[in-house]
Simulated assay, not measured.
Amino acid sequence: EFSCHERIQDSLGIPMYFADPYSSWQRGSNENANGLLREFFPKGTNFGMINKTELDHALSRINNRSRKCLDWKTAYEVFSEEVLRLI
């Protein structure tokens, strides 16, 4: 997914950061998202066997869950507020 990161970095003039291998503490948001997904799909789940309806249901529940880090708003509410500011 980052195979062209040098081109993006050069064209935007911004540094890119990659976490060190086996350093989950450097990827806090990613690890949190993995934990939320594990509530619906246990470790070892074959996602090739999960249908779109099951995945959509899990993502809807996750995105509509209020979170302390978002001042007890849902990710959807925060995203919607940001979009409305752009209009």
Rank of each mutant, 00 (worst) to 15 (best):
L59I: 08
M49G: 10
S80Q: 05
R65I: 08
N63L: 15
C69G: 08
S66Y: 00
R67A: 07
V78I: 05
I62R: 04
L59M: 15
R85C: 05
N64P: 10
I50P: 13
I62V: 13
M49L: 14
K68C: 12
R65C: 07
E82S: 09
A75M: 02
E54G: 09
Y76E: 03
H57M: 10
L59A: 10
E81G: 04
D56S: 14
R61W: 01
S80K: 00
M49D: 13
K68S: 12
T53P: 01
S66A: 08
N51C: 13
K68T: 10
K52N: 09
W72Q: 11
L70N: 00
N64H: 13
F79S: 00
E54W: 02
R85V: 03
E82F: 01
Y76K: 07
E81S: 02
S60M: 04
S80E: 01
R65H: 14
N51R: 13
R61M: 05
E54I: 06
D56N: 15
E54K: 15
L55V: 06
K52C: 13
W72N: 11
E82V: 05
E54R: 12
L55A: 13
H57R: 12
R67P: 03
R85K: 15
A58Q: 06
E81W: 01
R67S: 09
R61E: 04
N64F: 03
S80N: 05
R67H: 11
F79E: 01
L70E: 02
S66N: 07
C69S: 13
I50C: 15
L55W: 08
R67T: 08
A75G: 03
F79N: 01
V83S: 02
K52A: 12
K68F: 14
L59Q: 10
K68H: 10
R65W: 05
S60F: 07
V78N: 02
I62W: 06
M49W: 10
E82Q: 11
V83N: 05
W72L: 11
L59P: 08
L55S: 06
L59K: 10
S66R: 04
V78W: 00
R61P: 00
D71N: 14
R61A: 00
M49R: 12
V78F: 00
N63I: 05
K73G: 02
M49N: 14
R65M: 08
C69E: 09
N64V: 03
S60A: 06
R61K: 06
L59G: 07
E54N: 14
D56P: 06
T74P: 03
K52Q: 13
R85H: 06
K73P: 02
D56M: 09
V83P: 01
A58E: 08
L70P: 03
F79T: 01
L70K: 00
V78Y: 01
N64A: 09
H57L: 08
S80V: 01
R85L: 10
E54L: 12
C69M: 11
N64I: 08
R65P: 11
N64S: 12
L59E: 15
D56E: 15
E81A: 02
M49E: 15
N51Q: 10
L84P: 05
R65Y: 05
R65E: 04
T53V: 11
L55G: 07
R67K: 12
K52M: 11
F79C: 04
R85W: 04
W72D: 13
N51S: 07
E82H: 06
K68R: 12
